[in-house]
């Protein structure tokens, strides 16, 4: 088992108006980025709640990327700034729980920044690979 190379799973919440389009453009432009990333399109990163990040980890993500518009360019004015605060809160919460805060990252990518998006994904996957598996799979919530 130990000889099998660890391939991290990274969940990327991507804003419809920027990072998702950048990911799409990266694909159209045939830019390579690791297949470890699982992209979830969101209408705005401001829609994301702390619980979404926690549940992503609980359900087996080794890393979570939150990709919103460049600061000042949010389609809904300040959704990305709300997301930034929630990511900061969640990183502290993860640290308190004993999980590395580096596993959760907020980035800002414009719709035209396909190359930047690909580089961010490479960097995130390599960061999580170095941290090792989060080993949280099958931590399913049980109803009371």
């Amino acid at each position: 088992m130990n000889n099998i190379k660890f391939e991290p799973t990274v969940v990327a919440f991507c804003c419809h108006y920027c990072a998702y389009a950048a990911a799409d453009l990266a694909g159209s432009s045939r830019l390579q980025y690791p297949p470890n990333v699982r992209i979830i399109r969101t209408p705005c990163t401001g829609r994301l709640e702390i619980d979404y990040f926690m549940k992503a980890f609980e359900n087996g993500a080794d890393g979570v990327l939150v990709a919103g518009c460049e600061e000042g360019s949010c389609h809904f004015k300040e959704g990305n700034l709300l997301a930034k605060r929630r990511v900061t809160y969640t990183r502290n919460l993860l640290s308190e729980a004993g999980l590395e805060a580096e596993r959760l990252r907020m980035v800002n990518v414009s719709a035209a920044s396909a190359q930047k998006f690909a580089e961010i994904v490479w960097d995130m996957v390599e960061t999580v690979r170095k941290l090792g598996p989060a080993r949280l799979k099958n931590l399913t919530a049980k109803p009371g």
């Binding site: 709640e49 702390i50 619980d51 926690m54 729980a97 004993g98 080993r135 949280l136 931590l139």
Partner: peptide
């Protein structure tokens, strides 16, 4: 409800990690 879910998640993660 939201905070219960978040704290329960954090406790589950902490329990697994530690």
């Amino acid at each position: 409800e939201r905070e219960v879910s978040i704290i329960a998640s954090a406790l589950r993660i902490a329990s697994r990690v530690q």
